[in-house]
Design a protein around this nucleic acid. Structure first.
Lengths: 203, 203, 203, 203
DNA sequence: TATGAATGAGACTTCATTCAT
DNA sequence: TATGAATGAAGTCTCATTCAT
């Protein structure tokens, strides 16, 4: 089953298993991104993953666990890569850039996954929700810390609110970004950095 | 049916009709806000509106029309009130404030409705979607124009992107705003204005 | 819905409703008697009742409620008619006869229902189970009291055990009684009375 | 496979096989006793037997065969031990006691198995059913013969009916016997004997 | 104007079973 | 001897919608 703590050596069987599993996750991301979590049917996810309907239930206990796996993985990755970037950033400005670039870069390479993470946060419930919440809170804390450094002593800026507004800008992107138009991510990033950096450092 | 162009004099019967209709809309907003459009069942909407299930279908042709009515009304109102506010604003700064205050004020008084508008945009399809899209585009155009005025000659700012980022910040609010904590809207507005105004006017 | 406390006057509509409802119950009894509770599918119950599958769910919230309604009604009737019979019985012997005849008579007229009640007692759970349990306990108490009268002062007989054994004999009938062979109920009753009456009154 | 006629010498391998097999049967008895035959899933039987799901299918062709093995073994044992007991009983009374004690003793040591045998008789079908039926008929014949001896010349007692009533009392025990309360089997046996012996021998 | 009764489609999930390994 | 992976069939239930009244 998914989420086993022990990772055995990748035998041929294991590799087959992992392949199927990630095929299912990819299919789930695509389907849920297009139809919404409630709107997406497990059957259609299975069809896209080229597996029998009941095959899904060999890998996941239920539909919600599919969404959970998606969110858990995406947010964890987001946090990890951000931490790496932040480690090699020095000035507050560089750190803000790390935050923004990290988010955009992941986004542009994982459109479906990020959409599902942003748009279906409340579709999880109970234990699943709480577990993802924790990771998201970690992510939020990282960003808030960066913002605190950016604003320095300017007490007119509330880091909490500023972080929430920034997340709004970042998360909303999936609603208008069109990959076919191939808008340069660099430009997006630069614009957003400019607004928020200047916005938070002006006297 | 909904959206009749001709508005007859408000007889007692008409008033009864309108009352029921808005009760249904309120119930729909609450239900869809909590359960999502796909997750919300017409049955539960009817129950909340204290009406028989099939009673709904006297007022609306189908479930999608419910969502449409909600979005149509909210976005139209948003545009209307913004126009009024803008008419009495003079400087670019005042206009930016009009945009932000208008959004926040409506939001705080219509939490469910705005959430439904923001979160369920893509749940409409076909004709319904297009009609709402038009209104939203009008709204967007108004805001973009304000932003253009704010940035003035600073060509480093792309009004389109800036508007999209601003909308992100505004729309994301429903995800974290907690009416029970009674956060002051004034503070929210002030913070957001500060970031975006400074962010777009810094050299 | 089923089990409404208020009983409105039987309009034509009501009569139609009642008819359907008892058709469903009859179909459920037949189906569950033949296939067992778990083995019986709601679909097949519906087919026998000549109603659409989902039609069942207009009358009952779920499958378990079907079984509950069956058991609730049967056991209640059993208790009621037994009470009537006991009221007009005088000697202990007559009372024992009332118990046995009451059970057999109901049984022979409602083979399916009684089988379902006896064989599927543990198929109910939670609230449903408890509610039926209460009625059954009432039934048991009635019988025990009769047995106490029968045994008189013979302390060698434990009324509790005797009642349980008697119920065993009564309930087991559905396993071997063949209505096509038209065994006379009178004979059954007489035999059983003889064994238990003599068995409990011998010195 | 199960029920091989030839019994090879018990090598180590064979012993391992038998062990597993009886572990599965024990698990099946427990599971089916709790959840019913239809309600019990092979998966859960396997889990309880601490074996892989498909491992079951090495020992049994299908689910029904599991139930069959259980019933076949239990009823055969019941018949065997009864025959032994009867061989050393002399008076009719002693023989009746043999019948009752035999049943109760087996019952108290094999609660799950006997429940499954009594409650799931009709869950078998076709060939499986017939085979078990034969054994049960043998059991029934034994008991009927004893009863015939007990009643002697009292033609008012129909041995067939009396046997059926007695079986009812015996079989129903699983519905109310609570092993935790540790009711003395001796008392149960004595009570039942008293009722049936006196019941059938009174003038 | 409103509802009670009904339905077909489709949702999620579990089932017994198989087969290559 | 045993299992991991997979499947088709079937299960219960909810859904949006209709229509006679």
């Amino acid at each position: 089953m998914v989420n086993t703590q022990t990772k055995p050596a990748p035998t041929r069987r294991n590799r087959q298993y992992e392949k199927r599993l990630s095929a299912i996750l990819k299919a789930a991301a695509k389907t849920i991104a297009r139809e919404g979590y409630e709107g997406a049917s497990v059957r259609r996810v299975a069809a896209r993953a080229k597996i029998g309907l009941s095959g899904i239930y060999y890998y996941f206990h239920n539909k919600e666990e599919l969404l959970f796996a998606l969110q858990e993985h995406t947010f964890s990755t987001l946090v990890e890569t951000l931490q790496e970037r932040l480690a090699s950033a020095e000035t507050p400005e560089e750190k803000l850039r790390a935050v923004i670039d990290n988010h955009f870069e992941y986004f542009v390479n994982n459109l479906d996954e990020l959409k599902v993470c942003v748009h279906e946060i409340e579709s999880l419930s109970g234990h699943y929700y709480k577990q993802v919440l924790k990771i998201r809170q970690g992510y939020f804390a990282l960003v808030k810390k960066v913002i605190r450094e950016v604003r320095g002593r300017r007490t007119g800026i509330d880091p909490n609110l500023a972080a929430l507004f920034l997340f709004g800008s970042l998360n909303w992107v999936y609603m208008w970004y069109d990959p076919r138009k191939n808008t340069e991510m660099k430009k997006l990033s630069k614009q957003l950095r400019r607004i928020y950096f200047n916005g938070m450092t002006a006297p």
